[in-house]
């Protein structure tokens, strides 16, 4: 199998003969979804650390 670049110019790559809008919209949404999936546990972890440290600073009974 031989790999070759399918587009002659950046212009051709971005327009994709009129289908560029649809294709790049899909890829953008995919990137956004994965970004969300990756960030969710990180946010949760940060929130948790904050709450644990806030709890530790409070005087113990």
């Amino acid at each position: 199998m031989e790999l070759s670049l399918q587009f002659d110019s950046w212009q051709a790559f971005f327009t994709m003969q009129g289908h560029g809008v649809y294709v790049f919209a899909c890829y953008a949404i995919t990137v956004a979804s994965f970004a969300l999936l990756i960030s969710l546990p990180r946010w949760g972890r940060k929130r948790l650390i904050k709450s644990i440290r806030a709890g530790a600073r409070r005087p113990q009974h």
């Binding site: 070759s4 670049l5 399918q6 790559f13 003969q17 289908h19 560029g20 294709v23």
Partner: peptide, 12 residues
Amino acid sequence: AFTPMDYKQGNS
């Protein structure tokens, strides 16, 4: 960028 486009559906 490297896959040939579909003859029926084009680049979509």
